[in-house]
Each structure stands twice: as structure tokens, then as C-alpha cells.
């Protein structure tokens, strides 16, 4: 077999292998997305059954929409808080569980367990726990702290939805980090110890670079995921108080499904897509700078 026939066959196999995923993407992702882009150029009254081409009007409205600006600010806070808290907590838990200690399996399971609980039950419990006289403030009271009315203050509501979401899902990232940590060769640490590096230096100089591919993966998943958190906000705060937790996806839902402005909802969808795509592209571009194996 010559190199070139191998090459050509390789091409064919490559196309065959990606074909199912590719066709699926075309049919179930790109086609619907194109439809959404088309809706955004129209005024669509679902109830009345009217569908009318209005060109860029929805986009003009987007630029002038003050509520949208509030929503973008809320989204930025929510996403930033969620990503930072999720990744640092996941890493902390993974490091703790990576110690030579009896019973880590048990703790690992406990930290992972919220991932398995239904969202409905999860948010309901937290709603009760965050009541002014709920368990959270009861616990704070033990330490002499007079806890706030969590879901009714603008800042505390935002903090609450972030924390509730992080605790629900941090287990997934924790498991990924744990797997990565266990892949770091122990001799590297020994060598560093001999060179007199303290624990913090070892963590920063050895652990972080070696698990950087996992950090990339988890941060992409988490950022993208943070912009898609919907149900928790719908149950816990309904975007309030005021509009303090009305993140973009919730605003989109309100416009399209609650207010029946489908065309405008589609326009916000396009904006959301552009934001997510830009963020992901940015991370992907920067990966060569700090991620091992990718340069």
C-alpha cells in the first residue's frame, strides 16, 4: 500500500467517522439555528398567527432596550461568580480528596450526590432553607450572625442562586479534577521537595500546569453552562428582586414564551449565541498560551 492510497483512504475514513455527528449537527443544531435567525427578522405573533417580515427592526430594538442592558450586567455577574466559585471549589475538593486519607471514597460520593438529585427537589429544599427563619440563618445564628432574607435582597439573591447552582453541579468538575490530579506523577513532587519548594509553590508550578488541559475543559463547560442556567432562577427568584437575577436566558424566555414576542426572543437568542461563541473562541485561542499539550 503506498502512502498516497493510505492517505486517501484515511480521508474517507475520517469523513465517515465524523459523518453521524456532522449530519446531526446540521439537522438538529445549524438548521434550527438558521430558523431562529430567520425568526429574528420577523414579527411573529404566535397567538394571532401573524408572521411578518420586518428586517432589522428587532435588532434596532435590541440596541435601545434598557432592560437588556440590566440583564447583560446580571449575566456577567452571575457567570463570573459561578465560574470562579465552581472551579475553585471543585479544585479545592479534588485536592482534599486526593490526600492519602481513609474514607475519601465516601466523601467523594457525598460531594457528587447532588448531581443525581432532581432539580425540582433540589431548588425546593433550598428555597425553604434560604427563608428568613430557615436552616441557613438558623446555622448562622449559632455563630451569632443575624442572616439576611437571602432571596429578597438584590445582592444576596444573586449570591444565593450562584451558590445553589454551584453546590448542585460542582461534583462533576471535582471528579474531572480528581482524575487529572491522580494522573500527576508523584516523582515530580518528590523532586520539587528536594529542591526546597513549599506546598504552595509545588501546587502552582507543578499541579496547575499539569492539569491545565482539564482546567481548559472544565472552564469551557462551566462558562457555557453558566449562560444556560434557567430552571433554578425560574424557581428560586423568577428573575427578582427587581430585575437583579434576570440573566439573559431568563430574559429571552420571558420575551418569547411569556410575553409572546417570538421574533424579539429569537433576536436575543442570536445575541446569546454570539456572546457564548465569542467567549469560547477566546478561550480556545488562548489555550496555546497556558495549556500543556496544545502548543
Amino acid at each position: 500500500m503506498t502512502f498516497w492510497t493510505y492517505r486517501r483512504r484515511d480521508n474517507l475514513v475520517g469523513y465517515l467517522f465524523v459523518a453521524p455527528a456532522l449530519l446531526g449537527s446540521l439537522a438538529f443544531v445549524l438548521f434550527p439555528l438558521a430558523m431562529v435567525a430567520w425568526y429574528s427578522l420577523n414579527e411573529w405573533n404566535v397567538l394571532g398567527g401573524t408572521f411578518e417580515f420586518i428586517g432589522g427592526e428587532n435588532y434596532a430594538r435590541l440596541l435601545a432596550d434598557e432592560k437588556l442592558r440590566d440583564s447583560l450586567v446580571a449575566t456577567a455577574w452571575f457567570a463570573a461568580g459561578l465560574v470562579v466559585l465552581n472551579l475553585s471549589l471543585a479544585l479545592l475538593l479534588a485536592v482534599l480528596l486526593n490526600q492519602k486519607l481513609r474514607g475519601t471514597t465516601l466523601f467523594r460520593t457525598l460531594f457528587f450526590s447532588p448531581v443525581l438529585v432532581s432539580l425540582v427537589a433540589w431548588t425546593l429544599v433550598w428555597q425553604l432553607m434560604l427563608q428568613p427563619e430557615g436552616s441557613v440563618n438558623g446555622l448562622l445564628g449559632v455563630f451569632g450572625i443575624d442572616g439576611p432574607n437571602w432571596l429578597r435582597g438584590e445582592t444576596t439573591a444573586m449570591v444565593s442562586v450562584v451558590v445553589v447552582q454551584v453546590i448542585k453541579n460542582v461534583g462533576l468538575n471535582m471528579v474531572l479534577f480528581l482524575a487529572a490530579l491522580q494522573g500527576v506523577p508523584a516523582p515530580l513532587y518528590e523532586a520539587a521537595k528536594i529542591d526546597g519548594a513549599g506546598p504552595w509553590t509545588r501546587f502552582r508550578r507543578i499541579t496547575i500546569p499539569l492539569i491545565s488541559p482539564t482546567i481548559l475543559l472544565t472552564s469551557i463547560i462551566t462558562i457555557v453552562g453558566s449562560l444556560q442556567v434557567f430552571a433554578q432562577i425560574a424557581v428560586l427568584t423568577q428573575g427578582g428582586p427587581g430585575t437583579s437575577t434576570t440573566v439573559l436566558i431568563y430574559y429571552l424566555y420571558q420575551q418569547a414564551f411569556q410575553f409572546h414576542h417570538f421574533g424579539y426572543g429569537a433576536t436575543i437568542s442570536v445575541l446569546l449565541f454570539v456572546i457564548v461563541a465569542a467567549l469560547t473562541l477566546l478561550q480556545w485561542r488562548m489555550r496555546r498560551k497556558w495549556v500543556l499539550h496544545e502548543s
Binding site: G239, P241, G242, Q254, Q258
Partner: peptide
Amino acid sequence: QEELNQTIRAALDP
């Protein structure tokens, strides 16, 4: 109604 609902809900929060 829904848009009014949400707007009033948010405005009444304070």
C-alpha cells in the same frame, strides 16, 4: 398581561 405582571412584580419589590 405577562409583561405587565413581570414589570409590576419587579417595580413592587422595593
